[in-house]
Amino acid sequence: MICLGIEGTAEKLGVGIVSMDGEILANVVKHQPLFGGIHPREAAQHHAENIKDVLKEALKKAGLDIKDIELVAFSKGPGMGPCLRVAAISARTISLSNSIPIVGANHCIGHIEIGRLVTGAKDPLTLYVSGGNSQVIAYDSGRYRVFGETLDIAVGNCIDQFARNTGLGNPGGPIVERYAKRGEYLPLPYIVKGMDLSFSGLLTAALKKAKNADIQDVCYSLQETAFSMLVEVTERAVAHTGKDELLLVGGVGINRRLQEMLALMAEEHDVNFYIPGPEVMGDNGAMIAWLGLLMYSSGTRHRLEDTTVIQRYRADEVEVNWR
């Protein structure tokens, strides 16, 4: 079976094509050029204008015709309403016009499943970090359970907002990472609540500090503080769950310093650490396609009425029948 997946939860629009044996045949991602934060309506507009081209490009890359697609999947949530709806409508159109089944997939679980697929991790504790999410997730009896998460904004959002408000530019992650290479440590608020975290106070303090401190020092300290918090709660979750594998997913996972810190922690606890390649680390269509295949092949069937979007679709709401 061949599945086409459409990802559209935020500023990225992705179309991926994956076969049942786990081969990624195409994975095309296009994103809206950003000059500020993401405007949901404008991002949705971008997706609507580009879906045809992205779809064509993905099919071309895979060497397939739309008639070869046997299942279509889309990102059902969590994400921005207008963006989610463009992905859902596109998927419904493909499903109806080609008479093929459709499934709505949870975006967070998509990240985890494509991570497992490409790295070979079997039952990992997952740190999922991106512009919109920061969660520590592990599987247990039929569901992905959230062991820790941010109580306010996501880590990626914290770094992006910092970069925007200090004039460093967009997207903030790679820029802050570059500046952080030559900084020195300044104390910033470090907020961990059990396995949960908070980044909003850190953002405010870093912005305040940036007014009269060296920007490289602030970038360095912001990264060190935010990532130490993430590694600490992940470490606590490793001890709590006793899992012996760790998987890093989400756009912020591309950051080398975060990877390095997690690797050091994993080594200390004798845990195998897995990092998927950058092409599947951030939002992409292949992860939706692969999760769609897993769901469909284990019996999930969605009628057209079931294909609504859910903006606050949590990973722990999904009944997992493929594991």
Partner: peptide, 16 residues
């Protein structure tokens, strides 16, 4: 409130 939330979430993740 946050203190209680931590406990509540440990129930949800570990004693669901």
């Amino acid at each position: 409130g946050v203190d209680i939330l931590v406990f509540k979430k440990s129930l949800r993740s570990t004693h669901y």
